[in-house]
């Protein structure tokens, strides 16, 4: 489970993905243009190009979203991204400008390219954390605005929420030892 398999997606699966994504992008187009029939001449080719690109750039593995996990994730994300904006606004406007930044290395438990992309993007919108880069050896480098002691534990909690979004289970956390 934790090992990333490098199997490629079959041709049949690619065609299925292309059709589904064309339909999904087409639906977004219809929504954005408020179902203007004249715009379909542009929208249909664009949806097909977008779907073809996304299939071509698809990482090796596919990860399905788990619906109850997605609902819990949405609630968590809304609250935490609100706190994230509030926290950074407070630091920016405070005359003392309280900052104690650092880069920390977070050992990833979450496997799969798709879930890791979601994790990296989520981290960047939560209070005081920002994904800086993926290092080799399953490590994510995170820039933090305030290098307090519970940073790694906070990141572990975010990782668990993202794992829940994909219906995955994470191995137990190994805390302590370093730093």
């Amino acid at each position: 489970m934790s090992q990333q398999t490098a199997t490629t997606i079959s041709r049949r699966e690619r065609i299925r993905l292309f059709v589904l994504r064309t339909l999904a992008l087409g639906a977004i187009w219809v929504l954005i243009t408020e179902a203007d029939p004249g715009s379909l001449a542009v929208g249909v080719p664009l949806a097909m190009i977008g779907a073809a690109l996304s299939v071509a750039l698809q990482p090796r593995s596919l990860s399905a979203v788990h619906l109850p996990g997605a609902v819990r994730f949405a609630g968590f994300f809304l609250v935490q991204s609100f706190l994230g904006g509030l926290d950074v606004a407070r630091r920016a406007l405070s005359p003392a400008m309280p900052l104690d930044p650092a880069c920390v290395r977070y050992p990833l438990r979450l496997a799969g390219d798709g879930p890791r992309v979601v994790l990296a993007n989520t981290i960047s919108l939560l209070p005081g954390t920002l994904s800086a880069r993926f290092l080799g050896g399953d490590t994510l480098e995170v820039h933090v605005l305030d290098n307090h002691e519970s940073v790694l534990a906070d990141l572990a909690q975010v990782e668990e929420r993202v794992a829940g979004l994909f219906g995955a289970n994470l191995p137990p956390l190994q805390m302590g030892g370093d730093s």
Binding site: G85, V88, A89, A92, L99, P127, L130, H143
Partner: peptide, 23 residues
């Protein structure tokens, strides 16, 4: 304000990404 006041590219990214998303 964070974009102007914060000291480096990383801290400025925090300010722009999080505050603008919320705004």
């Amino acid at each position: 304000v964070g974009l102007v006041r914060f000291p480096d590219v990383y801290t400025r990214l925090h300010a722009l990404t999080k505050a603008d998303n919320l705004g």
